[in-house]
Simulated assay, not measured.
Amino acid sequence: MIDESVLLESRTMRTSVLGRTEVLDKVKALSLLPDGLHVTTAMVAMYYEVAENAIRQVVKRHRQELTENGMRTLRGSDLQRFESDNLYLSNESYPQGRAHLAVYTRRTILNMAMLLRDSEVARSVRTYLLDREESPRQRPAPNDVESLDERITRLSEASFTKLLGRTVVPMLNALVETSGEHHRELLSLRNDVQQIQIKLVEHDVQLSRLQRGQDVKALTGIIGTIDAMNWREFEEHVAQLLRRDGCTDVELHGGHGGDRGVDISARTADGRTVAVQCKNFAPFRHVLSGEMQKFLGASKVIHEADVALYVATCAFTRESLALAAQGGVTAVHRGLLEAWSAGVQLQVLRSS
């Protein structure tokens, strides 16, 4: 079996197994707050049988990764509302008048298991995850939709796609800027590489959807239901969330050429225009910077939207998150999507 320490070192490997939150209950009973969705730092420490400071140190070192996977720090009115919904937090064991509170989803708790080095419970979770990961590879069924070779190809394509987006395309951009007599040839080469990148992403999505269709019966909970949706169902789900949170004039554009780069348009309760991009990618995928750039142009330049939402069933790369922050796009990653679907209203949709 693969050594469980690989999860401590490889974020890619961690991301590939983050959907298996049911492992937490198989290793040890997990207590949740009354909302059935979150736990506090103290509860995470209790589950993994470590000091709270150990959890805080992991958060300090890996804050971005944990945040992308559902961890939130509540302050002000958000904290007051959360405490009101979880009344037992006000007992003697809970500090009164605190300025902020970190809360974690099941996905974040599983993420924590792959970052905590000195916890026997976390080690058991990692071992269980890798045992589940390796077993199908050792005994592939002859009628599987996706064979072992196809899985390896899919993972290789995902890595190669990231390499193209992060290294090859930027290098060609730099060469184009400084080229002289070979300018036209370099432009053609860059376009070819970008087309390859697009094709690999499309192929990756198709393979992952085939595999996801096999695993639908094993999926549970909110995020499992979302993973089982096709693209049209996912867009309708996001549209329903917008309506639930007070948006009006919610319109689905159906993914046709007339959408001009936006899947859903709407208007907030206080009159601001909303543009939404929906991507039901496989959990191990990441939204790339090039994909974020396209939506930035569509939402902010073409549609001139006041609120831009990029809603995805996966995480975002660091580069795409930086672009989103710079351009005023709210990146609704997998963890935040789960919380939104469970009833938490997006901050950006609230009336100012």
Rank of each mutant, 00 (worst) to 15 (best):
M1L: 10
L7R: 06
L8K: 02
E9A: 13
S10G: 01
T12M: 15
V17H: 10
R20K: 08
L24N: 04
K28A: 01
A29N: 06
L30Y: 06
G36C: 01
H38C: 04
T40N: 12
T41P: 05
Y47I: 05
V50K: 09
A54P: 06
E68T: 09
N69F: 14
T73L: 07
L79T: 06
F82M: 08
E83W: 10
L89W: 02
E92H: 06
G97Q: 01
R98W: 11
R98Y: 13
L101P: 02
Y104D: 15
S119R: 01
A122E: 13
A122P: 08
T127V: 12
D131I: 09
N143Q: 10
D144K: 00
V145H: 03
L148P: 00
E150N: 00
E150Y: 00
R154L: 03
L164D: 12
L164Q: 06
G165A: 06
A174E: 09
L175P: 09
V176S: 09
T178A: 15
S179N: 10
H182P: 14
E185S: 11
S188I: 14
Q194I: 08
I198T: 15
D204A: 03
L207G: 00
L207Q: 01
R209G: 00
R212A: 12
G213K: 02
V216A: 02
A218N: 07
T220A: 06
G221P: 08
I222M: 03
N230W: 00
R232Y: 05
R232L: 04
E236K: 06
L241Q: 13
R244P: 03
D249R: 02
G254M: 08
G255A: 13
G258N: 13
V262G: 10
D270N: 05
D270W: 01
G271V: 09
A275Q: 07
A275D: 09
K279T: 07
K279W: 12
V287S: 03
S289V: 11
G290P: 14
K294L: 08
G297Q: 08
V307P: 01
V307T: 03
Y310D: 13
C314S: 14
R318E: 15
A324K: 10
A324T: 12
G327E: 03
T330A: 08
T330E: 14
A331S: 12
A331F: 08
H333C: 14
H333A: 15
L336C: 12
A342M: 08
G343I: 07
G343Y: 02
V344N: 13
Q347Y: 07
